[in-house]
């Protein structure tokens, strides 16, 4: 049951002004108002506290309509009449899936880590399981329509770095032979989780992920997840991983490069 406002309270008077009082309460208040000047004065005072809505039209006018419309237009998800997924649809669906998985993924990740992880279960690396799970959704088409100019990601990278306590820029995350194609700040298990996405003509999608997990330092290690290779390490309370269908040796070189620049 919703609580009824206490008689003569500001809540009751406000609900009265807003037409939200039930008829009985309204009638009762009307009767009291007729005979109680102090109550009328309070009602009048509260009435002046309602802000007019017109000034907020300024914010409607300030909305970047073209940008928002373009963004919506790019947010295509597949429909049954078009089962062959468009690259945009797949990209955005993958991002949506990533966000959904990562944000909702406490339980899922925990289950995945327990049921899917073949090795190193002792360190409970469930964030890697979750990352691998959504990176597995990526295809070469996933990032086909994402901007190819690395500078387009500068602001995103900076925000991502701010979230993780790192200085990130297109230069610091650049990898040879890979095109920067995305930067996202997500969260996993209440911790900021950053993902930098790349596209390689040779290997397809590659992702570099960072989580602020507060764990002890650990040297780079290798594993396979979801049919992809993963190199992961921990430093200064942050977990790092690079994942992709990249030969182990190349992936380890990528990891070394990133570890030397990002800290």
């Amino acid at each position: 049951m919703e609580p009824l406002p206490a008689p003569d309270s500001d809540e009751e008077l406000t609900a009265y002004l807003d037409g939200e009082l039930g008829s009985n309460a309204r009638d009762a208040l009307d009767r009291r108002l007729a005979s109680e000047p102090a109550l009328r004065a309070r009602l009048a005072a509260l009435e002046t506290g309602r802000p007019p809505s017109e000034p907020f039209d300024i914010l409607l006018d300030a909305a970047p309509v073209e940008r928002l419309e373009a963004m919506l237009a790019a947010t295509t998800t597949p429909t049954p009449s078009r089962p062959a997924r468009s690259p945009r649809g797949v990209f955005l669906q993958a991002i949506a899936a990533a966000i959904a998985l990562v944000v909702l993924g406490g339980a899922i990740g925990f289950l995945l880590a327990r049921s899917v992880t073949p090795v190193n279960v002792a360190e409970v690396p469930n964030w890697r399981a979750v990352v691998a799970d959504y990176v597995a959704l990526y295809t070469p088409d996933t990032f086909a329509l994402a901007p190819s100019d690395p500078e387009a990601y500068a602001a995103r990278l900076k925000a991502l770095g701010d979230g993780l306590g790192l200085a990130l820029a297109p230069d610091t995350v650049a990898l040879p032979g890979l095109d920067l194609r995305g930067a996202l700040l997500l969260k996993y298990d209440g911790k900021p989780l950053g993902q930098v996405a790349y596209l390689s003509s040779e290997y397809g999608p590659v992702a570099f992920c960072i989580i602020r997990n507060g764990r002890d330092d650990a040297p780079p290690a290798f594993e396979e997840r979801q049919g992809k290779n993963v190199v992961f390490w921990n430093r200064d309370g942050r977990g790092y991983l690079v994942i992709g269908a990249v030969p182990r040796e190349s992936l380890e070189t990528f990891a070394e490069t990133l570890a030397s620049r990002v800290s």
């Binding site: 309270s9 500001d10 809540e11 002046t48 506290g49």
Partner: peptide, 14 residues
Amino acid sequence: VMSRLAAARAKLAA
């Protein structure tokens, strides 16, 4: 909702 609005109105009125 009601108490937030009442508090806001009181503040804005003042």
